[in-house]
Amino acid sequence: MIQMYHVDMRYAGGAFGLRDVSLHVERGEFVFLTGASGAGKTSLLRLLFAAEAPSAGQVLVSGRNLSRLSSSQVPQLRREIGVIFQDFKLLGERTVFENVAVTLEIAGASRREIRARVWSILKRLGLGHRLDHRPRALSGGEQQRVAIARALVNDPPLVLADEPTGNLDPDLARDIMDIIADAHARGTTVIVATHDPTLLERYRHRLLVLEGGALVQDNAPDSYPGSVRRAVSTSA
């Protein structure tokens, strides 16, 4: 699903987002991405949905070479990726329904399909009674779930989640992870960026550790008992 070969990514000012990252993620995998603040988690995810371009190396997503993607091919790529943003990026003026529907509208789904799918996912996420509310009027956890619904409503083959449980209490965090695990169980490839060690300990998945933009560890799901805290704290 994802292949990266010696990828560097620099921001306009010259700061490194990523340094010499090589990585393979298979279709259907669940991968945690961790590292201290500023380690490059968000940078890596942004690279994958073509919000940033690699400054060196090759990135392949679903067989597409991102350094050769023309700007007119970017939308098609993004329609195949569900992104859950660290800051949600919801539209405060639109209803919950409209916020979730945007994904399907842009995919060109029919009205009936949109209504059915949005309603069904919001109900599954416990927001069935919130359809006509504005995100402003929702709690942080509810907003987070709306953001997740928008990313998942289209059943994308790849889901990228940036701190999907950030600032949520443990119960809510578990709910959110269950929803994402659910999508994974249905065959979706998932990458979750987080620096929450309890999350990493509870759910056992492949774990990538970034440090200063470089990939410093790549742990198999069963090979890091007790190493998580060390991995995260050393890079912190």
Partner: peptide, 13 residues
């Protein structure tokens, strides 16, 4: 804001 979000979920130019 709306344009940014539309872009992110794959809206074309």
């Amino acid at each position: 804001d709306e344009i940014q979000i539309q872009r992110l979920v794959g809206a074309g130019g």
